[in-house]
Design a protein around this nucleic acid. Structure first.
Length: 417
RNA sequence: GUGGCUGUAGUUCAGUUGGUUAGAACGCCGGAUUGUGAUUCCGGAGGUCGUGGGUUCAAGUCCCAUCAGCCACCCCA
């Protein structure tokens, strides 16, 4: 029994759910394409170092969430927990620096060993874009605008809020981090246990703590904007300026921090109230140091990732399958003729099928069950005259059509809805 | 990884203070005379009550463990 259950945190995408996923990824791919992002795919596993080196030794993802294993050759491999590192590795591997800036879209499964919840799976699916090789704030604007456009195409933009923050450049961030650590160090006795841990691993995360005691401390903590150098301020100003020009609204959130080490400057999230604790639907930021950390040429980058499950859930749209044409033959001769008839309908681009067995009644039932638009009824009498009865199942009307005109006739009839 | 709630047919759920062959709806399968589905009527199949222990004369009902789902935390998409 346990063996027949899917592995914890994984689940099967049956046609109905698959269609909802396809809708998300197809619309996203199309919209990203309009913004000049081409789709790529990187392997779903990489050498462990690709993630360990870029995500930071202390991040939760690396310390407890990676699916890591040794292959038969003794290499340490990891199922990708996210795709940015993989795309950057591919950028280096393929010597794409000469083509920079490059713009990529991706869609596929990711793996994280977390406690499952609704909207949070161990194998889940993300779409994302990466813009590599552009250091200008206008690149940030384009990446965010593309994300926003995708949410619009999915019909969920109004359910989300764009939260925005800057992490500044390395100099600003280091300066701030030092002050912040000093501050919390002085009040360590009042800090929650989680946050004491954060103090060494990722002190800026304390700013986003949900603990009441922490929040009181945070209220009096040093403010990041006081430590942003001029360059960082100008950069962020250009980003917000671009968003303003596009009429994209956002909410400044100084507590919006990134868990992953490679982020700098722009950090953003599209969040929603509709998904409980899993409110982040699309998140990203600038990662200028990442490619250098991987061993490639210093190259700036910015991108975001979004969870397909969460987007599908948020949109609530369950697309229906295309309705087929059901061919209903009676008798051996008609059955044989139906074979080529179905083939020809398919060649004409129509979804068509015929049950594999059964008398007329069974086949009509089958036609109904597969939600057919029309049933093409073919008996000996029709066969001898080279025609078929075409019955529209929704209203029960029936008409006669010559077999050699059937594909054309149905193509026209069905395209008219 | 931590804490809480839940676990009965394919699905959504009933199952009284532990007590005889565990129910319903929907779905599925079959039938209601000769070449017409979906509506109606009749009938049928399908559950080791998540799994494994324990308490009891007796457990779907109580206890423990385990697995899974859900919720919150952690973290994140």
């Amino acid at each position: 029994m346990a063996d027949l259950q899917p592995v914890r945190g994984t689940h099967d995408l049956l046609p109905e759910e698959m269609r909802a996923h396809r809708r998300v990824s197809d619309l996203a791919r199309g919209t990203a394409g309009l913004h000049g992002f081409d789709e790529i795919a990187t392997p779903i596993f990489e050498f462990t170092n690709v993630f360990a080196r870029t995500l930071g030794d202390t991040s939760d993802v690396v310390t407890k969430e990676m699916y890591t294993f040794e292959d038969k050759g003794g290499d340490r491999l990891t199922l990708r927990p996210e795709n940015t590192a993989g795309v950057c590795r591919a950028f280096i591997s393929n010597g794409l620096a000469q083509h920079a800036p490059v713009k990529y879209f991706y869609s596929g499964p990711m793996f994280r060993h977390e406690r499952p919840q609704k909207g949070r799976m161990r194998q889940f699916h993300q779409i994302g874009i990466e813009l590599i090789g552009a250091a200008q704030p206008l690149a940030d604007v384009e990446v965010i605008a593309c994300g926003r456009a995708i949410l619009e195409s999915l019909g969920v933009a109004d359910d989300t809020v764009l939260e925005l923050n800057t992490l500044g450049d390395t100099e600003s961030r280091n300066a701030y981090r030092a002050v912040l650590v000093d501050y919390f160090q002085d009040h360590i006795d009042r800090l929650s246990e989680d946050s004491r841990d954060r103090l060494t691993r990722n002190p800026m995360r304390i700013l986003d703590s949900k603990d009441d005691g922490d929040r009181k401390l945070v209220a009096d903590a040093p403010i990041f904007s006081d430590y942003l150098n001029q360059e960082s301020q100008d950069f962020f100003g250009a980003v917000t300026g671009g968003l303003d020009a596009l009429g994209i609204t956002y909410k400044l959130n100084p507590r919006l921090v990134r868990g992953l080490d490679y982020y700098c400057h722009t950090a953003f999230e599209f969040t929603t109230e509709a998904l409980g604790a899993q409110g982040t639907v699309m998140a990203g930021g600038r990662y200028d140091g990442l490619i250098g950390m991987l061993g490639g040429p210093e190259t700036p980058g910015i991108g975001w990732a979004a969870g397909i499950e969460r987007l599908a859930m948020l949109s609530g749209v369950m697309p229906e399958a295309d309705r087929p044409i059901a061919v209903v033959p009676m008798g051996e001769d008609a059955e044989r003729r139906a074979l080529t008839l179905v083939r020809d309908l398919r060649k004409a681009g129509l979804r068509a099928e015929s049950a594999f067995s059964g008398n007329m009644k069974k086949r009509m039932k089958h036609a109904n069950k597969i939600n057919a638009v029309v049933a093409v009824i073919l008996g000996d009498e029709e066969l001898s005259r080279g025609v078929a009865q075409v019955k529209t199942l929704d209203d029960g009307t029936q008409r006669e059509v010559a077999l050699d005109r059937l594909a054309d006739d149905l193509s026209v009839a069905l395209s008219q809805g």
